[in-house]
Design a protein around this nucleic acid. Structure first.
Length: 408
DNA sequence: AATAGGCGCAACCGCTCGATG
DNA sequence: ACATCGAGCGGTTGCGCCTAT
C-alpha cells in the first residue's frame, strides 16, 4: 500500500509540527480519542494526513512519554533486548515504558551502535568485532546469540533458554521484503511456541544471569487473574503490544510492594520505582536503587553505591511528572478487565473528562514539577497548554538541563 | 565571526498485516 | 478469494543545533 491515499491530496502539510498543530491534535484526542486516525486531521482541523497525526501523537504528544535522555539501565536493557530481538524496535520499546520505538531506534543508530563499536562489539551480532568478519552487514542469528562469546554472555541474558524462544531471523542473503516476512512469521511462531513458557521458568533462567536480567517479564496473570490461560505467557514475549503495554504500564503504576517476591516489575524507571543513577564513569555500571512510590518529594534518598559521592536521581525522574495521568487510568483499566469490560473501550480522554474518578491512592501521589504541584483538576481547567510544556522545553532545553547535570 | 562537519531528533517513506466488505 | 483500507513497523532522510577549526 505504501503511501496513504490522503497524502496525495494537496494542501497537506509536511515537516515539523507547529505548536498550534500540536495543540489542535492534543485537544482533539483528549476530547474524543483518536478513533480512526484517517479522520483525525479532518476532525481536528489539521492539514495533515492521519498517519502523520498518529506518529506525532505516539512519538511526541502522548502524555505517558518519558522525556529526557536514556539512563544507563535503559541503554543496557536496550542492548540486551536487541541482542535477543534484533531490530524489533516496537518490541524493545514495549519493555521500556514511556519510550517510543522511534526514540529507541534513533538512540541505537546514533549512540549505542557507536559505543558498542568503540568497545569492540559488533552491534549487529553483539559479538566481538574480531570474531565477526564483515560483521557490519551481518544479521543476528540464533547461533550468534548462543555461540557463547564472552561479550554476549555479558550483554545478553543467559541463554540457552532464551535462544530457544527468540525468533529466527532470516538469512542476510534474503531481500528486505522477504526478510521482513520471514521475521514477522518467526515472531508469530516465537510467540505461539512459548505459550507454555512460564514466568517461573523465565525467572529461573534469569536468576542465573547478569543482574541486568532483574528486569523480569511479568506474567499478566499477576495482576489479571481473570485472564485466560493462553495469556499467561510472559508479557515479555507477547507480540500483542497493546495488551502488553497496558500491563507494563500497570506495572509502573503499581506499588512495588504489590510485586510478588521473586519477580520485579520490568524496568520501571518511570513511575513508582525510581532508579537512582550515580554520576559514574561512562562505561561503568551505574549504582542505583529503587525508591518507594509516594516519596517523590524526598529525592535525596541515600544511594546503594557508596563509591559515588555525588549523585542525582535519574534524569528520567525529572520528567516523570509528565505522565501522572496514566497509572490511575490504567488501574481503572485493570479493574475493567477484571469486571469483564472491554479495555479498549476505555479512552484516556474519558479519564481526563472525569468519567473515571481518581483513586485516593493516586491522589496521594502528588507530582512535583518545577517546584509546584500540578493538580489534575488544574490540568483539566487550565487547559492543555498549561500542563504540557512547550515542545521546545521538553526537547532541547531539558536536554541541556540534563547535560548540565551530567557536567556537574 | 564564519563555516564545515558531526550529531541527534523528528518526520517521512515504503512495506506488511489484519480487518472488513 | 479478492480488493481495499487502516494501522503499525522498520529504514531512511532532512533539518537544526553544537562544536571544532
Amino acid at each position: 500500500m505504501g503511501r496513504h491515499s490522503c497524502c496525495y491530496k494537496q494542501k497537506l502539510r509536511k515537516g515539523l509540527w507547529s505548536p498550534e498543530e500540536d495543540e489542535k491534535l492534543l485537544k482533539h484526542i483528549t476530547k474524543y480519542g483518536h478513533g480512526c486516525w484517517s479522520s483525525v486531521p479532518k476532525l481536528a482541523g489539521l492539514q495533515r494526513c492521519g498517519k502523520s497525526c498518529r506518529l506525532r501523537w505516539t512519538n511526541y504528544l502522548r502524555p505517558d512519554l518519558k522525556r529526557g535522555s536514556f539512563s544507563k539501565q535503559e541503554e543496557n536493557l536496550i542492548i540486551e533486548l536487541h541482542a535477543a530481538l534484533g531490530n524489533r524496535w516496537s518490541q524493545i520499546a514495549a519493555q521500556l515504558p514511556g519510550r517510543t520505538d522511534n526514540e529507541i531506534k534513533n538512540l541505537w543508530n546514533s549512540c549505542i551502535k557507536k559505543k558498542l563499536r568503540q568497545r569492540g562489539i559488533d552491534p549487529n551480532t553483539h559479538k566481538p568485532l574480531s570474531e565477526t568478519k564483515g560483521g557490519e552487514d551481518k544479521v543476528l542469528t540464533i547461533s550468534d546469540k548462543t555461540s557463547g562469546s564472552n561479550e554476549l554472555k555479558l550483554l545478553a541474558p543467559t541463554s540457552g533458554n532464551l535462544s530457544s524462544i527468540v525468533p529466527q531471523p532470516a538469512p542476510p542473503s534474503m531481500s528486505m521484503a522477504d526478510r521482513n516476512q520471514t521475521e514477522r512469521s518467526s515472531s508469530k511462531n516465537f510467540v505461539t511456541s512459548t505459550k507454555d513458557f512460564s514466568l517461573d521458568q523465565f525467572a529461573a533462567a534469569s536468576h542465573e544471569s547478569s543482574n541486568s536480567m532483574d528486569y523480569f517479564p511479568l506474567r499478566n496473570s499477576v495482576y489479571s487473574p481473570n485472564l485466560s490461560m493462553h495469556q499467561n505467557l510472559p508479557l515479555w514475549f507477547n507480540q500483542n503490544s497493546r495488551l502488553f503495554d497496558m500491563n507494563s504500564e500497570l506495572n509502573c503504576g503499581m506499588k512495588s510492594t504489590a510485586v510478588p517476591s521473586g519477580s520485579r516489575p520490568i524496568v520501571s524507571t518511570s513511575m513508582d520505582l525510581k532508579p537512582i543513577v550515580s554520576i559514574a564513569e561512562e562505561d561503568s555500571l551505574p549504582g542505583f536503587q529503587y525508591l518507594e512510590a509516594g516519596n517523590s518529594s524526598n529525592n535525596s534518598a541515600s544511594t546503594g553505591n557508596p563509591s559515588s559521592g555525588t549523585e542525582l536521581q535519574s534524569n528520567n525522574s525529572l520528567f516523570d511528572s509528565s505522565i501522572f495521568q496514566w497509572p490511575d487510568l490504567l488501574l481503572n483499566k485493570q479493574a475493567q478487565i477484571q469486571l469483564g469490560a472491554e479495555p479498549e473501550d476505555l479512552k484516556w480522554s474519558e479519564y481526563l473528562n472525569g468519567a473515571i474518578s481518581p483513586s485516593t491512592d493516586f491522589q496521594n501521589q502528588s507530582q512535583l514539577f518545577n517546584g509546584s504541584v500540578k493538580e489534575e483538576n488544574q490540568f483539566l481547567t487550565d487547559g492543555l497548554s498549561s500542563w504540557l510544556q512547550p515542545p521546545e522545553l521538553f526537547g532541547k532545553d531539558l536536554k541541556k538541563i540534563s547535560t548540565a547535570f551530567k557536567q556537574i
